[in-house]
C-alpha cells in the first residue's frame, strides 16, 4: 500500500496536471489571435493563466520532492490495511 500511496501522492497528481495544463495554456496563449485577446479585455489570459498554473504545479511537485509524505503517514497507512493497533 505504501508504493501506490507514494506514486499517487495528491501533490504529484495536482502538480503533474497543472504543469500539463500550464504548458497547453501558455502555448495557446502565445498563439492567441487578436480576437481572443480582445474578448478577454486585452489581457493575454491564456498565457498568464498558463504561467500561473506552471508555477503552482511546479510548487506542488517541489513540495512533494522536498517532503515526501512524512513518516507517520506511511506507517499508519500500512497499519490500517491490516489490524489497527
Amino acid at each position: 500500500m505504501a508504493a501506490p500511496q507514494r506514486l499517487f501522492d495528491i501533490r504529484r497528481v495536482i502538480g503533474g496536471l497543472f504543469v500539463v495544463y500550464g504548458l497547453i495554456l501558455a502555448v495557446t496563449g502565445l498563439l492567441d489571435s487578436a480576437q481572443e485577446i480582445q474578448k478577454a479585455e486585452g489581457i493575454r489570459i491564456n498565457l498568464w493563466t498558463g504561467i500561473a498554473m506552471l508555477v503552482v504545479g511546479g510548487a506542488f511537485l517541489l513540495w512533494e520532492r522536498l517532503r515526501p509524505s512524512d513518516g507517520p503517514t506511511s506507517s499508519n497507512a500500512s497499519a490500517s490495511s491490516g489490524e489497527k493497533e
Binding site: I14, A40, E41, G42, I45, T49, V56
Partner: peptide, 22 residues
C-alpha cells in the same frame, strides 16, 4: 475533490480578473 478545487479556482480567477478589468 481536492483536484477539482484547484482546477475550479484556476478557471474562475481569470473570470474575476477580466471581469474586474471590464
Amino acid at each position: 475533490e481536492v483536484m477539482q478545487f484547484f482546477v475550479i479556482v484556476a478557471g474562475l480567477v481569470p473570470v474575476v480578473i477580466i471581469g474586474l478589468t471590464r
